[in-house]
Design a binder for these strands. Structure first.
Lengths: 209, 209
DNA sequence: GTCTATAAGCGGATAGAC
DNA sequence: GTCTATCCGCTTATAGAC
């Protein structure tokens, strides 16, 4: 009878996907309160009441969008491989995060806006899932440092620096576009960005004699 | 007669300041469309119609808040001193930006949200004032590189990396608070952050033999 | 499952007394 | 300059036919 959250029919599933895709775009662009349901409905090529047949209300839709993009958001960090050389492992991680900023800039901005506005819908996730994951990776980073293969840096700040520099190209794309005329969808700009970010993070800016 | 924008009386000026302070907090927390005028009025200890006596409408108030925080936002980059050693000059710049993230986190988030949502009220500034400033600083950075005192990095990406890492502590404070339990208002955490960010940016992560 | 029509309520903005 | 009261448009959400 009710198709909410667990649509049984094929057509229902397709519609839910269409709605979630459309909602990601509108929420990332306008924030939660700025987003309009009929705007999302229009983007999903659907009437507003029809959309509200699948999602009880705006809040439920917003949470669903966050949840759906969450795994993708947490994914790259899980891959950080303790067995590898730190240079290679961190290089991979940076490349992975940067690719994510290129292919999913709206997801990045969605989370960024949510966190900047207090992370009210994410605080649960941050203090459980992400905290656990970060705790595990801290151990990896500490080992590299003990083995003298990495500078003596607090693992938190290392992770923050990588997150900040890589996500910046998605989150602040408007500013970067305004200054350079380009964004990560430009193949050459993406390659140059990858090279620069990797060099800065791993080798640092100042030449050592 | 009209006190709008140019209040003649002392009491008017004081009220305008109170409103702008309150508005910064509410806009930074909820974004433009999420912000409520009566919420700002309440924070400014004033009735809603009274607030609208000083600012014709919400849009005008928002623009006034952006304009007032703009100089502070552009300030640190102006100070980047070509005469200094790059290590010292960039170190100063990082410290300056980080201090700004500590003392004005709401201003940082206001601009971040504005840019992430398309920078519609800032595009003028970005492509004129900021672009000019960045152009000037690019020359400084290029000189340092030519003198072999700096790694061969595109100046744009260097600036982006510094902006990203330093502003991150203001913009993503909720996430950092959730993971570390601290923010930059903690004196020890601020000192550790400054040390870590400086080391990562200037010296890099990977130990060179 | 999808639509048209509409209820319900919020929030920006104004009128007008003081 | 500041207030109370109020208007009006806009947006969410529902009712009910198909």
């Amino acid at each position: 009878m009710t198709a909410l959250k667990k649509p049984k029919s094929r057509i229902g599933e397709v519609n839910v996907e269409r709605i979630l895709d459309a909602a990601l775009g509108v929420f990332a662009r306008h924030g939660y309160s700025g987003a309009r349901i009929d705007q999302i409905a229009e983007a999903a090529e659907m009437s507003k009441p029809n959309l509200l047949y699948y999602f009880r209300n705006k809040e439920e839709l917003y949470r669903a969008v966050l949840r759906r993009t969450l795994d993708m958001w947490l994914g790259p960090l899980r891959e950080l491989d303790p067995a590898k050389d730190p240079r290679e492992a961190l290089g991979n991680y940076i490349e992975c995060k940067l690719s994510y900023s290129r292919t999913h800039p709206m997801a990045s901005r969605l989370f960024a806006i949510e966190i900047m506005q207090g992370a009210q819908h994410l605080s649960e996730v941050l203090s459980t899932e992400l905290a656990q994951l970060v705790e595990a990776k801290k151990a990896t980073i500490r080992r590299w440092i003990e083995e003298k293969r990495l500078a003596d840096i607090d693992p938190y700040h290392l992770l923050f620096a990588i997150w900040a520099t890589t996500q910046h190209y998605a989150d602040f794309a408007a500013q970067i576009q305004s200054l350079t005329g380009k964004d990560l969808s430009d193949e050459a700009f993406f390659a140059a960005t990858k090279r620069s970010v990797t060099t800065i993070m791993l080798d640092g800016l100042v030449r050592h004699p």
